[in-house]
């Protein structure tokens, strides 16, 4: 099984440690991981902003980069689901390298494909889970609070395998944090307001870290935390799953 690691642009530039943790985690589970060089962006920011066509070239590049792998795995729910759902339209074909049965968000891959039930992970901290909208409502990493279906959570299942961790969730368990791609700039006042509300909800759990499967939400909330010097930090879930006793 050959996995191509899909590293979204902002993880590449701002959070490379999330990529490193993804690599470590997957290889520790016996997966053959490769990183096709010179990845940039999947095109989601353009498309969600209303310029889907401007993502076509990027889709073609992704297609080219990933065609030789059995699976495409990335540590970003939002980017993964964009590729999965919109590339068929952009590329005008159903069959493509990042086809829906080959591309996975990393937690989804661990949980549903590798069916991991044991991890050698240690993280003796309180964390509050950030159930991101695209992770939950598009990628189905858990059950959204507004749907009447059995409660489940891929993220919480995986975190329960970590030694020493205490897992919490905010009161508004899956309220949007207000990032929304270009929304964060175009509707900055609303975006910041939503982010402040969300961070406060996470803080009220008593957690030391906000964790989730989307670095974009975390980046937005981190910006608020740093601006207001709030007593909480952000950490991508793979960094926690890859943490070990020193």
């Amino acid at each position: 099984m050959k996995v191509g690691l899909f590293i979204p642009c902002y993880i590449n530039a701002v959070y490379p440690q999330v990529g490193v943790a993804s690599y470590k985690l997957l290889t520790s589970l016996g997966v053959d991981v490769d990183y096709p060089l010179n990845q940039t962006c999947c095109g989601q920011p353009m498309a969600n902003g209303g310029f889907e066509k401007d993502a076509t070239r990027l889709a073609e590049q992704m297609e080219d980069l990933f065609k030789r792998y059995d699976y495409v795995v990335g540590p970003s729910a939002s980017c993964v689901v964009f590729v999965k759902e919109h590339y068929p339209t952009l590329l005008r074909k159903e069959e493509h390298a990042c086809l829906s049965n080959r591309i996975y968000e990393i937690c989804e891959f661990l949980h549903d494909v590798l069916k991991v039930n044991k991890l050698d992970a240690y993280f003796p901290h309180k964390v509050s889970v950030h159930n991101s909208c695209h992770g939950l409502r598009l990628l189905h990493l858990g059950s959204p609070s507004e749907l009447v279906e059995p409660r489940r959570s891929t993220l919480k299942d995986l975190l329960s395998l970590v030694e020493g961790i205490e897992v919490f969730e905010p009161k508004r368990v899956d309220e949007c944090c207000g990032f929304g791609g270009l929304f964060s700039i175009e509707e900055a006042a609303t975006s910041v307001c939503m982010g402040q509300d969300k961070v406060r909800d996470h803080i009220s759990t008593g957690a030391e870290y906000i964790t989730g499967a989307d670095s974009s939400c975390l980046m937005h909330m981190e910006g608020i935390i740093r601006r207001e010097k709030l007593p909480i930090r952000t950490k991508h879930i793979v960094e926690i799953l890859a943490s070990q006793k020193v």
């Binding site: 307001c193 937005h220 910006g223």
Partner: peptide, 16 residues
């Protein structure tokens, strides 16, 4: 972006 948020810092090295 800067209305209520700090900009993220670039990492010393990209993953690439």
């Amino acid at each position: 972006w800067g209305i209520g948020r700090e900009l993220p810092d670039f990492a010393p090295e990209t993953f690439n």
